[in-house]
Design a protein around this nucleic acid. Sequence first.
DNA 1: TTGAAAGCGCTAACAA
DNA 2: TTGTTAGCGCTTTCAA
Lengths: 328, 328
Amino acid sequence: MAKLRLEDVADAAGVSKATVSRVINRRGYLSQKTINLVERTMKELNYRPNAIAQQMTTGKTQLIGILVPNVANPFFGELASALENRLFKMGYKVLVGNAQNDAVKESRYLQQLLNHQVDALIIATHNHNVEEYQNANLPIIAIDRYLRQDIPVVQSDNYAGGKLATETLIQRGATKIIHTDNLPSNQHDTQRKVAYETTMRSHQLTPTTYLTNFYGDHTDRVNVFNQLFDEHPDVDGIFASNDTDAALLLQIAHQRGYHLPNDLQIIGYDGTQASQLLAPDLATIVQPIANMANVAVDLLESRLKKQPLPASVVLPVTLREGATLRAK
Amino acid sequence: MAKLRLEDVADAAGVSKATVSRVINRRGYLSQKTINLVERTMKELNYRPNAIAQQMTTGKTQLIGILVPNVANPFFGELASALENRLFKMGYKVLVGNAQNDAVKESRYLQQLLNHQVDALIIATHNHNVEEYQNANLPIIAIDRYLRQDIPVVQSDNYAGGKLATETLIQRGATKIIHTDNLPSNQHDTQRKVAYETTMRSHQLTPTTYLTNFYGDHTDRVNVFNQLFDEHPDVDGIFASNDTDAALLLQIAHQRGYHLPNDLQIIGYDGTQASQLLAPDLATIVQPIANMANVAVDLLESRLKKQPLPASVVLPVTLREGATLRAK
DNA sequence: TTGAAAGCGCTAACAA
DNA sequence: TTGTTAGCGCTTTCAA
């Protein structure tokens, strides 16, 4: 069976192509009789409009491109899922570009999304080639990173998160607190680090940070964290910049005989569903992923309606208690 | 600046549209001089071919649709990521349909993917409406579930996995072993359950299974698992049908004062990267996610080349040791 | 080796 | 209320 076209439906129903098109799009004047006739015919023929051809004529694809570093990372998986969920309800389809932490792939994806005439873009990658976004002439919303002056950024409050983590550890009695941070080339995690350092100093404590590379592998992290314990066996609090690092630190601490939360307290960052389910004992700073997605979509909607937008929206984070933290 | 068309490039370069098209697609006879000229012009103008128009004429979209229950679930997130990774290398783009465990959304997505003229489909959802796949007239590969006689299924060896989990627990000294299974409407997890029951009986042990609903929420699971411990306080081994359930069981067991792995051993299922990172202590049966993705793409490639295909491919699972299991 | 022109399936004026 | 027709931006014969 060859692909059915709108014209086949028109012929079968004995009407014109325009009429069928009107029924499909519920546009213009239409008698109920015609609507019924055409709908019945479409159903009988099992006709499905060719979205490509529709896009060709309207110029609108109803397609939104999302670029993330890696959907296998629960944070971005959940973010993409939440974005997609909202957008789908609004009648958009989502083309997810999974940059796999690869700058070349990121830019190839960007090209492809543009070629595909996406109506807008939501960017959550680390964008090594910011220039490419400069001459992209369509609505863009960035998540947790700055791209260009007129591109609004949606993010959670990284400074407040870093401060909350640090102060919580201090309140629960830790004094030798170490921070581990995980930096991509553009160093966006710095707000958390700055907050940690400032908070430590304001309590007359000395900040110490260990850095891991966002693009580094598991072994690198294990090495850095072992070094941390070797050099600071008296550590009694760790603020990790993400939950998987926190889980790894927790494991290493166990192996080294630390008892949590008495000898050592650990607090992670992100608070994904996955970490909640798989590491329910881990205390963590929760980023409001679903809310970030909602706000991003709202901004996109405003942008598409040519409404004025804020330069950035910062959303609050919360503390999730866990067994790696002493009781209040 | 208005959108550039191929014609603008042709005018600027002083050649015909056909020539520009030939350069873009490297087809037909072309002098090097013309190639250089056209390429230079395209670069200067920052021209990007309109993929929609290309698709319109060629009928090929180079788009593959993937339908998953939920990318926020690490298993499917990692699967989608692996699929996308392979497909991208082959020049395909991926349209991910995230059914959000919602039958209506699944079918709406299916329609949309078909409307978008995807060249092929990879289905990993629980497909409540199998009929819809019946008259879809394009290459389809299914992951871990049967759709139609001529649609090949890629799956890991669920029976062997269930057997491996059960035998491992038995070998490590457990005798009161309980299985928790997590069933969607189409009950595909049954192979694991059957393997568990068969293996138990062959060791003269009595199988006991607690069921949770795949679409149920967290509270439902907590209730079922509490019931498990209430009714079987002497349980000394649990085989959970996925890692998040295993992590939850682990947490409840701790709260109830069980010491692992002495009082109780737990073994999960799936072995995602996320569970490895976030719950490194958890022993589990690992499904070869990346390999499943690779095989699915290979099959798709063969199908697109009209080569004959196997009805199904079953891939081996492995045991990941962890602190929830006694030493060998 | 290049150009002219038809056509992919649909929508949107404009007519009727 | 419905039909006719001219494109949308590209690729692909067919001619030159």
